[in-house]
Design a protein around this nucleic acid. Sequence first.
DNA 1: AAGGCAAATGTTTTT
DNA 2: CATTTGCCTT
Length: 717
Amino acid sequence: MNVTAIIDPLNPPQREAVTNTDSHLLVLAGAGSGKTRVLVHRIAWLVQVEGVSPHEILAVTFTNKASREMRERIYALLGSAPRSMWVGTFHGLAHRLLKMHWQEAGLSETFQVLDAEDQLRLIKRVYNNLGVDGDRWPPRQAQWFINGQKDEGLRARHLQQTGDPFATVMLQVYRGYEEACDRAGAVDFGELLLRAHELWLNKPDLLKYYQQRFRHILVDEFQDTNAIQYAWLRMLAGDSGWVTAVGDDDQSIYGWRGARIENIQHFTRDFPGVQTIKLEQNYRSTGVILKAANAVIARNAERLGKNLWTEEDDGEVISLYAGFNEQDEARFIAERIKDWESIGNLRSEVGILYRSNAQSRVLEEALLRLQIPYRIYGGHRFYERAEIKNALAYLRLLINRHDDTAFERVINTPTRGIGDKTLQRLRDTARAAEISLWQAAETLLSELPARAAGAISSFRDLINGLPTEDSGLCLHELAERAITVSGLLDFHSREKGERGQTRVENLGELLNACRGFEPEDHEQSALRQFVDAAALDAGDRQADSDDDAIQLMTLHSAKGLEFPLVFMSGVEENLFPHKMSVEEPGRLEEERRLCYVGITRAMKKLYITFAEARQLYGKENFNPVSRFVRDIPGQLLEEVRLSTGVSRPTSYAKPSGGTNDGTENEFGLGQRVLHHIFGEGMVLNFEGRGAQARVQVNFDNEGAKWLVLQYAKLRAM
DNA sequence: AAGGCAAATGTTTTT
DNA sequence: CATTTGCCTT
C-alpha cells in the first residue's frame, strides 16, 4: 500500500500529527482543521507504515455518529475493515468490556442498560421505598446528583456524610439507587464507565492484558472527557501505551455535564514527553468568519491559544439584524432563506442555530408561513420514544424474564387490568424475597384476587408463548410477533389524533431497523445484540436525509457540523450568554466557546440576528445585543437596515376605524427615535389613540419604557 | 382506565 | 405562554 495516499493530502502539521510515533501526542485541532482526517490517517499510518496490528489499536469517540464515521473512513482508506480494532464510544467500549467480563465485573450476564428515563423511574421508586419527599427534593435533582458523582468516579460509599440536609438526602437516595440497580441487574450510562474502570482496578491481570494489547490509543474530542473517562484512559495506557489525544479547548461546551477541560493540561502533566501539535489552518470558512471567531474567543482568559487562518478570501461580511421582536427576527431569516433558494441553492445548506430549544417555535412558524421545508434536531430520538421502548421491553423480556425494568414497563401496556395496587404488591413481594417481579408474579398467583391473577397469568402465557431467540425466526419476525401478539401495535394505533398513526409508523420503522440490523459477532443471538445496540444508540434523530430541508438545531448539537449559510439567532444578552451563566466567569467562558462553535459552523455566509423584544415564558423581555457581537470587529459586520414600513404583526394590530393621528406613519415599529433625556431607542409597540396614544420604546441605555406620545417629543431618526 | 383539570415549570445533551 | 405532570374524578 502506498504511503503517499496517507500523507499527500495533509498539510505539514497534520503530517506531523499523523507520522510522529515516538511520543504521546496532543493535537489541538481548531474548528474545521481536519481533525478526523488526522485521526483516520494516523491509524492508517500506524497499520500500513509502522506495521502496527489493528488488534493493538483502540480509538474512542463520544458519539455513535463520530465512531461510525471514523470506522467508515478507516475502511475507505485501508480498503478493508479491520475487525480486531476497537473503535467506539466510551460507553460502547465500556459496555463491550463489561459484556465480556460480566462475572469479574460483578454483573449478571444479562445486565441491562438504563437510559435517562429508566433511570429517573427507578429513582422515583427508590424515593417511594425510602419515603423521601419528592416535592422537597425533586427526583431530577437526585438524578443530576448521582450522574454528577459517577462522572467524578464517586460511589455512595466514597461520599462523606455532612450536616447539609440536601446532601444527606441525596446520599441516602444514591445508596438506595445503587442497591436497586444491583438487584435489577441494571446499569446506567455513568455506571458503564465507572464499572469498566473498577473492573481494571480490581482485576490487575485483565488490566495487564488490555495494556499489553492496546499499544495505541486514540481519543477524539478530548476536551469533552470527564474525570472517570480520563482515569480509564490513563489506566489503560499504563506505562507502555501510546496515546494520541485530539481536541480543541475552544470547543469545550459540555463542562456543565462533567467534561473537564483541564484534562488537556493533565494530559501533558501525566504523560511524559507529550508532543503538542496545533492545527490552525481552517478549510471550512471564509476569512471574515474566521476573524470574527478569533476575535470572540480571544477574550477568554483560560486558553491554550490558537489562531485559525485560511488561504481563502475574506468573503462576505457578517450581517447583523435587529428584529423588533422574535417574530420579526424569524420572518427576516425565512425571507433570506427564500432569497437563497431563489438563486438556486439547496435548503440543506442552511443551518439555523439557537441557544435553547424554546426558540425553535417561532422560527418554525415563520418557515411554515413561507412554505420552507425544515428539519428540526433535538427532542426525542428514535429509541427513546414510548412505543419503541415498549416494543423493546417485550424483546427484553423474551431474553430475560427477570428484567424488572422491562416487566414494569409492559405488564400493563397495553392495559390488561393490572393496576397500581397489584403492581405494588408484586414489588413488595419481590423486594422482600429478593426475587424478580416475574418470579413474584408467579408466587402471588394463588393469593391475588381472581381478576388480577387472571390478567397476570395471561400475561405470563403471552410472554411464554412468544417465539424465542432459538425459534429459527429472524430478528424482524421475532419483533413483529412480539408487537402484534402482545397487542402493542393495536394499542398504539388506537391512540387518538395523529399520535396513533405516528406511533404505528415508528413501530414499522423499528421492524425496518430489525431487518437492516447486522450482528457483530456470532456468539450471541441477533436479538440480544439488537437490544443492546438500541440501549446505547439513541438512533438518528431523523432518518430521511434525502429531502432538501433547512436544518434547525441548538448550538450544542451543531458542533461538528458545517453549513454554507448559517443563521445564529437570538444573540441577545440573557439568552446568549444565557442568564444562568453570566455570573460565574467559568460558565461565561463556556458560553463564549459556544459562540465560537456557532460562528465556525458557517462556511460562506453568516447572519447574526437578535430581537429587541422577546416573549419568553409569557413575559416580555428587552435584551441588548449579546456582548459577543460587540467583540466582533466592526469592519467584519454590516448592520442590515430595517426596511421602512415593516408590516405590523397581527397581534399588535389595533381595531380598525376611527381617525388615525398619524403616529403610525411618523413612527413605525422598529423605527429609531431620539428622546431628549433617554437618548436613542427603537419603537416596539403602540397603544391607544389621540391624546392617550402611548408608544413603547426600547432605549439603548435605559431599557424599555412606555411614553405618552404628546409629551414625549420623540424625534424620528 | 381514561379523561379532565390545576399546578408546576421552563438552558445546553450524549451515552 | 405553553407544555408537561400529577392528581382527581367519573
